[in-house]
């Protein structure tokens, strides 16, 4: 168990996301208007894992011409700035989250898969509800980044012991009791420290407990997308389904059960190629 001060102090010990990730977030969150092809290309070329993802995607059936293989320069021109920026960010964030969520009992890769599944759901919902889809994608991708902080604070089996005693209260309440802050708040604080745009900070902070008068509708979208990911079986640790679906969000978005269930199916299908190592950006073309 930790006090709030200890918890906040521990954030400084967490390695930051690469500065290039922060640049990519700023480009994407600004409605893509700030995206600069030359700069994105430079980021791609500097990071081997991103370059590999980009080449794989450019040479896949969805984008490529069979029998022809593409160089990085071809791929950069072919995929466009926003798609490149999204793949680059997704690769970096996934790399960071792949081993995270251990304190929740998550298996390797679960948290990065859940981040991407939520991001795909958020992007689709955003298009339907007139919210910037790139902003929604990025915010959803980063929504559980605070679980890195919980991992660093929680001793082995600490959360499992809490979950075993849990009654039907939101899991965030247990996190606050144990650490003085929950993973949504800690994620927001991390994003703030790393210089992420304020829209992202707010969306990460509110993704489980959205404010009743959200300054930005993207928070509602991320909240719904998080539930969709959970229904698709993603990122379920010892916290299980101890997260509410906010009825006000449902009303504000006007979303129906059939719509969300179809989205659960879409998210599952979209992730199947991701599991095979191919970056998934179905909507990016």
């Amino acid at each position: 168990m930790a006090t709030l001060n200890e918890t906040i102090a521990s954030l400084d010990r967490l390695p930051a996301l690469p500065s290039t990730s922060v640049r990519l977030v700023a480009m994407l969150a600004g409605g893509g208007a700030n995206a600069n092809l030359r700069e994105v290309e430079q980021i791609v070329r500097q990071d081997e894992s991103i370059a590999a993802s980009i080449l794989k995607l450019a040479n896949s059936a969805a984008y490529g011409i069979p029998g022809r293989s593409f160089s990085i320069s071809d791929a950069v021109r072919r995929l466009g700035t926003r798609t490149l920026a999204k793949i680059a960010l997704e690769t970096q964030v996934s790399g960071r989250l792949a081993n995270a969520g251990v304190s929740y009992g998550l298996r390797r890769g679960s948290l990065s898969e859940s981040a991407l599944g939520g991001a795909i759901a958020a992007e689709t919902l955003a298009r339907r509800h007139h919210v910037d889809p790139e902003l929604a994608f990025v915010a959803a991708l980063l929504r559980d980044i605070g679980k890195l902080a919980i991992d660093a604070l929680a001793g082995p089996d600490a959360l499992e012991a809490i979950a075993a005693q849990a009654d039907a209260r939101p899991f965030l309440a247990y996190e606050r009791e144990a650490f003085g802050a929950d993973h949504a708040e800690l994620g927001a604080l991390l994003c703030e420290r790393w210089g992420m745009p304020v829209e992202i900070v707010h969306a990460v902070r509110g993704h489980h407990e959205p404010p009743s008068n959200p300054a930005d509708p993207v928070i509602d979208v991320i909240h719904a997308a998080d539930c969709v990911a959970r229904w698709a079986g993603l990122g379920l640790g010892c916290d299980g389904l101890l997260y509410p679906f906010n009825a006000e969000v449902r009303e504000r978005l006007g979303t129906t059960r059939d719509e969300l269930e179809a989205l659960v199916a879409d998210v599952h299908s979209a992730l199947a190629p991701a599991a095979s190592g191919l970056p998934n950006l179905r909507n990016a073309a």
Binding site: W231, Y243, P244
Partner: peptide
């Protein structure tokens, strides 16, 4: 299983 406080709208579980 069910998400918390689902007021009967989704109830997928």
């Amino acid at each position: 299983a069910e998400v918390l406080a689902d007021d009967g709208h989704f109830r997928i579980g």
